[in-house]
Nucleic acid binder design. Structure first.
Lengths: 215, 215
DNA sequence: GCAATTTGTAACTATTTAGTTAGTTAATGG
DNA sequence: CCATTAACTAACTAAATAGTTACAAATTGC
């Protein structure tokens, strides 16, 4: 709502802070995803985004502020995608849709995976400071809780499993396979990055979560 | 075999390359686990280990060589612990023992977790170069394959699941929960690092893997 | 016991890095 | 239409960083 009044979206404008900010964030996301917080270079981000380095400090205070802004953007995207997920369907069908959503999301957003790993390396110290993080995930947990309750009521799912536990289980199976794909491929001497290996694992997640959840 | 003849283990010796190397590796492991490859400082590792910085380059060529040496040490420890695991027991009991081993290992070796994450961030480029990695994991996979086959033959486990798939499943559930504990705690607004949360998750892994594997 | 080699040290360097200074150009509001 | 503010730039700096140079002392092989 504030966008239209504050930034009148001039096309080809010589100055467009909104776009500059967005371009810096996009370049920063790539850089942090590839090299981590310490490995990413502010000079490189400035050059890649076409912004002057001074503007990065103008908008984001310092490197850690930029990293936090990237984290917040990533998190907002994840929540927006989660909110768009429709789980109003018969329990088994909704479960399938939910699992596919998680798998597809992390498969298509590898930067999210590596940046979240980086934040964990640093003990979550950026997210913890952020004001924007509180309870954005709650509507999604409520939606999943609703699905599980409907499934239990219908006698399809077994009782005793809460939404957060189920969710961490599904994310663990998807995220770990993708985040640690290279070391797993080396250790077990097989290419787990191939489309066929990915299909097989996606199928395995479906079967496993069904085995865990079905009555 | 070479140790006894080459390094006669003099206690309190003024020079002891074996110990210097070991101390550098220990300090490097801590530094890489805390700050990642780019974030770790060679000067800090030298100071923490009591070794002169020049010796680090003398033994490990460069920072990446040191990182690789840490990776190889971590991997060798993991394989040694895996080899010591006894799975000769009735299938269900052996399965419980195996799951406990994986959970406990990653719980007690958080540095292994973060360093493996770092190696994945860098696309496995250090491990891939290493000559020491090939097939060290094989005896363990064979042992697990044996367990699964015995379970299937006894009608306790369902057929169609290979050892690597089962193993990645168990490690995913343990490793992901531990590696991403802080962001998960923030996102879902609950302390997943507490002993009770850890006990609950360990129990959940047991129940889930049993659900996946039991006939 | 001495020449060669291994292990160790202190001080140095060339670059890179995050972060600044000091200013210019464009938009905006009265 | 001008004063004020927001957006932007180029060049700079102080500190940190990976990697070296040039030696010295201990150990080992002969």
């Amino acid at each position: 709502m504030a966008e239209a009044t504050k930034a009148p979206a001039r096309s080809g404008a010589t100055r467009d802070p909104e776009r500059t900010r967005a371009r810096v964030l996009a370049a920063a996301r790539k850089a942090f995803a590839r090299n981590g917080l310490a490995g990413a270079r502010v000079d490189a981000i400035a050059e890649a985004s076409g912004a002057n380095k001074r503007m990065i400090y103008y908008y984001f205070t310092d490197k850690e502020g930029l990293f936090l802004a990237v984290l917040e953007e990533i998190y907002a995207e994840l929540c927006a995608a989660s909110d768009a997920l429709d789980l109003i369907a018969p329990p088994e069908k909704a479960l399938t849709r939910y699992i596919d959503f998680i798998w597809t999301y992390y498969l298509n957003n590898p930067e999210t995976v590596t940046i979240l790993n980086s934040e964990n390396l640093h003990g979550g110290r950026h997210l913890r400071r952020s004001g924007k993080m509180r309870q954005l995930e709650k509507p999604f947990v409520d939606k999943l809780t609703g699905l599980i309750e409907r499934g239990v009521a219908a006698g399809v799912f077994r009782p005793g499993l809460d939404a957060v536990t189920v969710h961490i289980t599904v994310v663990a199976l998807a995220y770990f396979f993708l985040a640690n794909n290279t070391t797993l491929s080396i250790f077990f001497d097989q290419d787990l990055s191939s489309p066929s290996a990915q299909r097989a694992w996606r199928r395995h997640i479906h079967e496993s979560v069904r085995a865990i959840l079905l009555a």
